[in-house]
Structure formats: C-alpha cells, structure tokens
C-alpha cells in the first residue's frame, strides 16, 4: 500500500513537472472551461425562456445537474483523459511492454500514471456552480445528505472511470480505436441535462445502457434532498459492477496482447 501511495506521489509530481513546461495551456484550458460553461448555461436558458420548464426541474435545480456535469468533465480532463487516452499509444508503440514488466498493478499504473492540472478549473467551477445553484434552489442539506451526495459523486466518478477504461482497454484488440473514448465523452454530453427531460425510451437507455442518469441526475437529486434508497443502492451497485467489469476485462485483454513487434 505504502509503495502504491509513494508511486502515486512520484507519478503526479513528474507529470506536474511535464505540464508546467507548457504554461500557455493553463490559459487555454481556463478559457475552454469558462467558454463551455457559458455555452451550456445559454443553451439551458433557451429551454427555460418565458417561464418554461424542462423535465419537471426548476432552473436552479437544472443548474445543479450542469454543475455536476462540469465537475465530472474536469475530473475527466484531470485523470481519465491523460491516462486512459494514452493506453492506445502504449499499445501502438509497444511501450506497454515496460508497464507490464513493472512489479505494480498494470491497471493502476495505466489509470494513475499522469495527472493534468488543467482539469482542475473545471472541477472548481463545477463545485462552485453546484453550491451556488443548490443554495438558490432552496436546498439546506444536512450532514447526512452531504455524505450521501459525496458517496454518490464517488460512484459517478467510478462508473465514469470504468466506462473509459473498458473502452480504452479494447485497444488491445483494436489497436486503432484511438478515439473510442472521445465517443464516450461526446455522448456523455447528454448528462448536462436532467434525465427526465428526455423521452421515455432514451431515459431507459441513459439509465441502463449508458448510465448518464447515475452520473449527474442521481447525485443532483441527492443534494437537493430528494435521494431515495433504491436509487442510491442502484448507483452503488452500478459502480461496483462496472469497476469489477473493467478489472475482469483488463485481465482478459492481456491474454490477447501480442506486443507491437520491434
């Protein structure tokens, strides 16, 4: 355990050192977070013009969902994108060889090796929006509610991570799927809006197949004090299952790894 923590520290301090070589990125990423947030708010406002509602959610409640989406998007840029996006390159160039020969869990290495500080503005902006909008929506969360929300957000992060990892791991078979994770990212855009805003068929799809509902809507319900035990359990179950799936798939995939020759 200690070895893993120490490795993590070295991983992240070295990636921080790399990222700081490109300071201009900070500005670009900040602009990109703000631009995306502003755009999303404007689009959301289109739906709420002239006193209309969306899926039974008030304007402020919908902003909580958007806040959670922004938070998760920041998490994606901080950890998922830099790490899991690199798996395909590892497979393509054969540098996965070095990872596999390290006496450390290869899934851990591949998932935690890099850390990009440029996703943090998104995380912060998301948190700020959640707090602000939840307040305005009249939420007055108890300590228990806050704990529950944190747990659900953790589940969201785990589900999101597992989805990404599963897709990235398929590059062992389909070396060239270097943008499969982009597909995921673009489809998860649906999570900017409460899942009840979609037609029933899509709602089912977004709950069972592509668990967008668990990513943003369920935690948002929780902080607004509307969480129900079945949904919380479902979210927890979903997180465990997808994490288990990602581990199982990775083990299975390695049997097919042929290692790029030369």
């Amino acid at each position: 355990m200690g070895r893993y923590l120490r490795s993590l520290r070295e991983f992240w301090s070295s990636s921080l050192a790399i990222e700081l070589e490109y300071p201009a990125n900070a500005l670009i990423e900040l602009l990109s977070v703000l631009g995306n947030l502003a755009g999303s708010v404007v689009v959301l406002a289109l739906f709420y013009g002239r006193g209309h509602g969306l899926g039974g959610w008030s304007w402020d409640e919908a902003l909580v969902v958007l806040g959670i989406y922004t938070l998760l998007d920041g998490f994606t840029s901080t950890l998922l994108q830099p790490n899991l996006g690199a798996i395909v390159n590892h497979v393509r160039t054969g540098s996965l060889d070095f990872v596999l020969l390290k006496p450390i869990d290869s899934q851990f290495w591949l998932s935690a090796r890099s850390f990009s500080p440029w996703g943090l503005p998104g995380v912060l902006a998301g948190l700020a929006l959640i707090v602000l909008a939840a307040r305005r929506a009249g939420a007055n969360p108890s300590l228990l509610t806050l704990l529950g929300t944190t747990l659900l957000l953790l589940c969201s992060a785990l589900i999101l991570y597992s989805l990404w990892f599963v897709l990235a791991a398929t590059s062992i078979w389909f070396v060239k799927v270097w943008n499969a994770t982009e597909v995921l990212r673009s489809t998860l855009v649906a999570g900017r809006f409460p899942v009840s805003a979609y037609p029933p068929a899509l709602r089912t799809l977004f709950t069972l197949v592509l668990p967008v509902a668990f990513l943003t809507t369920v935690p948002a319900e929780a902080i607004l004090g509307r969480a129900t035990i079945p949904w919380m359990l479902a979210s927890l179950g979903m997180a465990m299952v997808s994490l288990g799936l990602s581990r199982g798939l990775w083990r299975h995939a390695l049997r097919y790894y042929t290692s790029a020759s030369s």
């Binding site: 509602g53 969306l54 899926g55 489809t187 805003a197």
Partner: peptide, 14 residues
C-alpha cells in the same frame, strides 16, 4: 440528443 430534448421541451412551442 438535442432533438430528443427539444421534442419534449415546452419551450419548443415558442
């Protein structure tokens, strides 16, 4: 996705 949202949104009436 946006089509799905707009088709159920009250704002579409405007």
């Amino acid at each position: 996705i946006m089509l799905a949202l707009w088709s159920g949104a009250a704002a579409a009436a405007d």
